[in-house]
Design a protein around this nucleic acid. Structure first.
Length: 739
RNA sequence: GCAGAAGUGGCGGAAUUGGCAGACGCGCUGGACUCAAAAUCCAGUGGGCUCAACACCCGUGCGGGUUCGACUCCCGCCUUCUGUACCA
């Protein structure tokens, strides 16, 4: 990187695995842990400010109540457990190990979660504040996935229970002909009939062995099992069967749905597969008949039908009105209410691996616990011989007796440390702020420094790959907002302007990889053509955001350009060329110079480096033609070139007689008056076809141009005595005679 | 399937309040310099037609449309890339 002349200040290097750095990652985790989300104020507050209900008086119960409100909490949630490996696998690792013959199952295990869902609304609305690519904003928008609907309770026949479902179409409740629970739903084992239990266990086993990916790959064929229980449709009063099926996800909504096969594609497919009744309760707005046995009617623009009981009728109501009406009825009867649901799930934060920041919480023998104080951080990882997981689902840390079990100095009590560690994402959630105050040991970043460097809406320009569009960029926004709520940062959002650079592919148009053998080694290119040629070529390839192939052959273009630029100013042996003299510029040279300064400056602002370089090539071509080169133009050109090709520019600058580094110079200023052309090539069209080009002075009026144009031979020929019906005139551009 | 982006010479790409399509570079062709070559410099280079020039015609993935005028705007398709995965 040094050879390429990239301007990194290595004294400010940071490292998320450095204890002095992860001290603050742990501190931030504890800030989150010691918070609850005040829905009224729509922000995080300290856990000690949480109002405790009067009926809770027992100290232990108060702690439990607090724990259930913390933004970091423990939950039993399904993870990819591989018993043979004794460890939990990431989604993308599952297939790899399964193909090696290992068994991976979805098993609920104790995990630390962060309540990012509390920030769902803010993460959504604050997207308006940032200058990000629309595609990335869209991705986050869909990922957060806000849907507005209702929750409805369906009583279970013969049980004192009711299944809560979430639906965006409560108006179709009259058409709900069965319920479907996620296989993992807690009611399944409780309400299933005995004769179905064997079948259910079998189905559950199969479902648990499927990864999320497999569940969806099998999407075309719906599977499920009737569990021998019935629910009562609260709208119709009818008994409807309860099924389990893995197309219903435990993690979303309530983990249960009311199935309306007449008005939902998935429910329709399922009903067809298992011969369940389909009832039409919405009709198309155009009044045409709809064959509900053929396909589901899913438009939200219809009118209700077959939807009435003794208390409420949705018949002939347009869908939006019907939704409103049924929600009011559900509320009145206390069987449901309006509900906003997000696709966004809480963040599974813990890892059962050695390499990660230890979660700084200790548990005492009496069942109480405490988080570490700032003066006890960082909580270091112990030195170990064996990094393998404990095999119990815990990390290697659980096997380090001396680390895990100890006597707490502050309380004198025997304690056991949490053995979970944090994910890679944690340290990258806030590193962008550490650069502003990289060595501070009192706080993660001094507020004033943070405000100075990042106060203008966050990081001014954040360049990174599109693969981070939803995970890193969402997690970091979440942490930043928590820090904002406690006044540690001055902006609501961490990254003001975001740019995704495109990948440079190998010469074969494929991703560069060792296995494909298409990797280009920059060191070799630098050796042959120099660092400036490489830098310039990478920028000249095409737009920064585009994915584009490398071509070693084409680097001669930028290499030649730099050689030509050199010869403009210097001799082969590095002396100032005798042709560089203090002379006036010709009007044409003056224009090219000023336009180059303007264009390159603007293109840098827009990150359009390829066109900036093209303009500098035009400059060099123009001045190569000249017998004598004006010194002032050469100096300004070197200043333009300097950010792109710093090494050559530096040498040329010194050859031109300067002693101060060119990198300390200001970018040159152009003369606005000189970038306006004195004369322009004017287009003359006859019936929209170009028939002549005239070299004219600028700002001529229509009459003047018309007169000149009509004297042109080619124009006369094409008008051919015909009547001119219309004349279109665009100032300084064209005149068009319609005949 | 859904969402987003893209499709322009032999190649990378340029051109957006709709107004010269192909800037700039690579490659290729010819010339100058040289004993020769490399390097360098100069000229040419979308296709068709033409001995050639002029002129003319065609041309921005495909098919329509709006407009005096469309790479650009609208409708419908095709292809490629990226992301995502039954979210009730």
């Amino acid at each position: 990187m040094n050879a390429l002349g990239l301007g990194y200040d290595w004294t400010k290097e940071i490292n998320t695995t450095d204890p002095n750095y992860y001290k603050w990652t742990q501190w931030m985790f504890l800030l989150i842990y010691n918070s609850w989300f005040d829905k009224d104020l729509n922000k995080a507050r300290h856990i000690n400010e949480l109002p405790i209900p009067a009926e809770i008086t027992d100290a232990m119960e108060i702690e439990n109540y607090k724990d259930s409100h913390r933004l970091a909490f423990i939950s039993m949630i399904p993870v990819n457990w591989c018993a043979e490996l004794g460890t939990v696998l990431a989604n993308e690792e599952v297939d790899e190990w399964k193909s090696k013959g290992y068994t991976v199952e979805r098993k609920p295990m104790r995990q630390w979660m962060l309540k990012i869902t509390e920030y769902a609304d803010r993460l959504l609305t604050d997207l308006d504040l940032v200058e990000w690519p629309t595609s990335t904003k869209d991705m986050q928008f869909h990922w957060i996935g806000k849907s507005v609907g209702a929750e409805i309770n369906f009583d279970v026949k013969n049980f004192d229970k009711s299944v809560k479902v979430f639906t965006t179409r409560p108006d179709t409740v009259f058409g709900a002909t069965y319920l479907v629970l996620a296989p993992e739903h807690e009611f399944v084992s409780q309400i299933a009939s005995d004769d179905k239990k064997a079948e259910i266990v079998e189905y559950l086993k199969k479902a648990s062995e499927k990864s999320d990916l497999e569940r969806t790959e099998l999407s075309k064929e719906k599977t499920g099992v009737f569990i021998g229980a019935y629910a009562i449709n609260p709208a119709t009063g009818l008994e409807i069967p309860i099924w389990i099926a893995d197309y219903v996800l435990a993690q979303y909504g309530t983990g249960a749905i009311m199935a309306v096969p007449g008005h939902d594609e998935r429910d329709f497919e399922f009903a067809k597969e298992f011969n369940l009744p389909i009832v039409q309760v919405v009709k198309p707005a155009d009044g045409k008949a709809w064959n509900i046995e053929e396909s589901a009617f899913v438009e939200k623009s219809g009118f209700g039908m077959n939807s009435a009981n003794s208390e409420v009728s949705l018949n002939d109501e347009p869908t939006p009105k019907a939704i409103e009406k049924i929600i009011n009825w559900l509320k009145e009867k206390n069987i449901g209410e309006a509900k906003v649901q997000f696709k966004l799930r809480d963040w599974l934060f813990s890892r059962q691996r050695y390499w990660g920041e230890p979660i700084p919480i200790m548990y005492f023998e009496d069942g109480t616990k405490r988080s570490l104080d700032l003066d006890e951080l960082p909580l270091l990882l112990p030195e170990v011989e064996n990094f393998n997981p404990a095999g119990t689902g815990e990390s290697a840390l659980a096997t380090v007796e001396s680390w895990v079990n100890f006597t707490d100095k502050k309380t004198g009590k025997k304690a056991r440390l949490e053995t979970n560690t944090m994910p890679q994402w944690a340290g990258s959630c806030w590193y962008y702020m550490r650069y502003a105050d990289y060595a501070n040991n009192e706080i993660f970043c001094d507020f004033e420094k943070q405000k100075y460097w990042l106060g203008n809406g966050g990081v001014d320009l954040y360049v990174g790959g599109a693969e981070h569009a939803v995970l890193h960029l969402l997690y970091a926004r979440f942490w930043h907002k928590v820090l904002y709520d406690f006044g540690y940062v001055s902006t609501v959002e961490p990254f003001q302007k975001l740019f995704h650079q495109g990948l440079i592919l190998g010469e074969d148009g494929e991703k560069m990889s060792k296995s494909r053998g298409n990797v280009v080694n920059p060191d070799e290119v630098v050796g042959e053509y120099g660092a400036d040629s490489l830098r310039l070529y990478e920028m000249f390839l095409g737009p920064l955001e585009a994915v584009k192939p490398w071509s070693t052959k084409n680097i001669t273009g930028t290499f030649n350009f730099l050689n030509r630029a050199w010869r403009l100013i210097a001799t082969e042996d590095g002396k100032l060329s005798e042709k560089v003299q203090d002379i006036e510029l010709t009007p044409e040279q003056d224009y090219v110079l000023n336009y180059t300064i303007k264009k390159v400056g603007e293109d840098i602002e827009n990150l359009s480096f390829n066109t900036a370089i093209a303009q500098m090539m035009i400059f060099v071509n123009e001045f190569t033609k000249a017998e004598v080169k004006p010194r002032s133009a050469m100096e300004k050109f070197v200043l333009c070139l300097s950010p792109f090709a710093p090494h050559i520019a530096e040498e040329l600058w010194q050859i031109l007689g300067h002693h101060k580094s060119v990198s300390l110079e200001e970018y040159p200023i152009f003369d606005e008056a000189k970038v306006v052309k004195q004369s322009i090539e004017f287009i003359v069209q006859v019936s929209s076809k170009i028939r002549a080009k005239l070299q004219l002075a600028v700002d001529l009026e229509e009459n003047q141009v018309k007169e000149l144009a009509l004297q042109n031979e080619s124009v006369i020929k094409h008008i051919d005595g015909k009547e001119i019906r219309k004349v279109i005139f665009v100032k300084n551009k064209l005149i068009n005679f319609i005949v």
